[in-house]
Design a binder for these strands. Sequence first.
DNA 1: CTGAAAGCGCTTACAG
DNA 2: CTGAAAGCGCTTACAG
Lengths: 334, 334
Amino acid sequence: MTRRPTIIDVAKAAGVSKSTVSLVLQASPLVRAATREAVRQAMADLGYVYNRSAANLRSPNVGLIGLVINDLGNPFFTDFATAAQQAFAEQGFATVIANSDENPAIQARVVASMIEHGLSGLVIAPTDSGAEPTFAALRRAGIPTLQVLHKADPDTETFPFASFDYATSGAEATRHLIAQGAHKIAFVGGLKDHAITNERMSGYAAAMIAAGLPRLALPGRPNRAFGREAATMLMMGKRSFEAAVCFNDLVALGVMAGYARAGRKPGSEFRLVGCDGIAECSDGWPQLSTQHCDVGQFARDTAAALLGWLQHGIRPVPERRAAVSLIARASSRG
Amino acid sequence: MTRRPTIIDVAKAAGVSKSTVSLVLQASPLVRAATREAVRQAMADLGYVYNRSAANLRSPNVGLIGLVINDLGNPFFTDFATAAQQAFAEQGFATVIANSDENPAIQARVVASMIEHGLSGLVIAPTDSGAEPTFAALRRAGIPTLQVLHKADPDTETFPFASFDYATSGAEATRHLIAQGAHKIAFVGGLKDHAITNERMSGYAAAMIAAGLPRLALPGRPNRAFGREAATMLMMGKRSFEAAVCFNDLVALGVMAGYARAGRKPGSEFRLVGCDGIAECSDGWPQLSTQHCDVGQFARDTAAALLGWLQHGIRPVPERRAAVSLIARASSRG
DNA sequence: CTGAAAGCGCTTACAG
DNA sequence: CTGAAAGCGCTTACAG
């Protein structure tokens, strides 16, 4: 395999100096149109490929954004990643996505690798625990970083935080179920003692206390499989439940499947509300009520905040909470 | 923000030359243990961050793998990405993931960006059409690239191809439905004239012809929403269908939801087989029969093939087909 | 508008 | 085992 052509080769072919080629590469207005055309032609002829490593060495303005997600198996996060990537692309920034899979060691490794490659900025949905080394590295490297959904580092001046107002929506969902006549209402799913679980559960707890109703939490992994298991427990015994507020839509869909399996259709006899607002809420049957988060808008706002920081030095507000809206569908109205 | 320390700073602090620091960075056995320790300590004290751009400039051995996926919304692809990333990480390679979302322009842009950053190798699940510029750029850059699932470039000597044997499994699924007594069997989902659609449909067609049964295809987007729509059509009219082979599991799950909505439970009266083998096949109810692809193993095999190429110069076989196994569950057995 | 020169932070032979 | 020197492919002032 032959050596890749450099700007010197291009300069020679186009009969200009390499500075001029560099200027063309940066779309500088200083270069005459005819010259630019000649350089472009030479690049095409030679099959020139820009070497960003070399460029970064001189001016570390990479135009590269990192996106670290903790659960790529959840449609909520893939929707977030897709929308954010698109928003960055519109401003000429490339996005690299990595999945930590809730594993702090993987998270530390991918972030370290991203730092070495020289990121312009980073958006991270951190693992619930063990994120300290990752944020220490980010702090050392001075990479503008936004934390979303889970506040792993309390220093939101350095690492601005954005999430949804899950507390309010959880209370609203719970009151909705109570209004439908349910009294025995469980909170299902979410890993025990995880910050996001506590946050999403807090609204449920407040609403139940306000109504003088007993609370019960069934913590578990935030996926369908756990939801199915949980359904068995919800149906068990004499004190069978009438409704559930679920940690997320995946859990709710799993609970729904568990009930279906037992020949019971969620709706009038068992009412269910999820959280996130993934597409499958309305793609399944019965359709799932949910605490709907506009993830597309959230991703665009997050991207805009990071870009404003990078491009204009406008530091994002330390803490932002997007509104969540309750969408009541067949699963909670019978 | 102060200047990031370089190996020269580290060398000064540790009282050695910068060559020695470089050797330590590369874990070279040439450096005495005590010296290495001193250098490590100096790096920790200074908060040194390795600058990979500078390193790449001298030796373009980046240890970075690109992964370009055409539909991050499909669990099949997120499973693939997660498993591949893990396999690469075990060999010390970092993975960056990008989502082309079936958009050739986005695909070209993310691949161009990856090439500029200097990839060691690339795995791409190409868009169905418009991938020519992307492969032309890859060819020019000389990046070892594996195509998976869709053969966008016929030159498999340059771009080895790996996929599943969908033709065989489609025929098997169809014969299974016929054996259950179904005669009016449709093929549902998959974008019309797309290569993957034709491939997955070919087994269905062959089996139906062999059995002397009439064929009917209902092409459409490979997601749940289309499956739901399709269900309406399948139930319509007098010639209502008895079974369907679906393009993938998402479509099948959508069809299932569509039937459920009409108060009809798939199983004995309507039999359904999906394709891919995503987790939701067994997380829902009734459980979905599927043409199961071992995506984890496929991802590991693909990673191993690329790593063998990069590390030992062993060029992968031009074309590889992984076996697909039929898993018959409640959705097709009643 | 264009060119000559210095330098970004590393790695790589080459001496010692 | 360790050090001095050259050079990777760009960008950035600085002249002209």
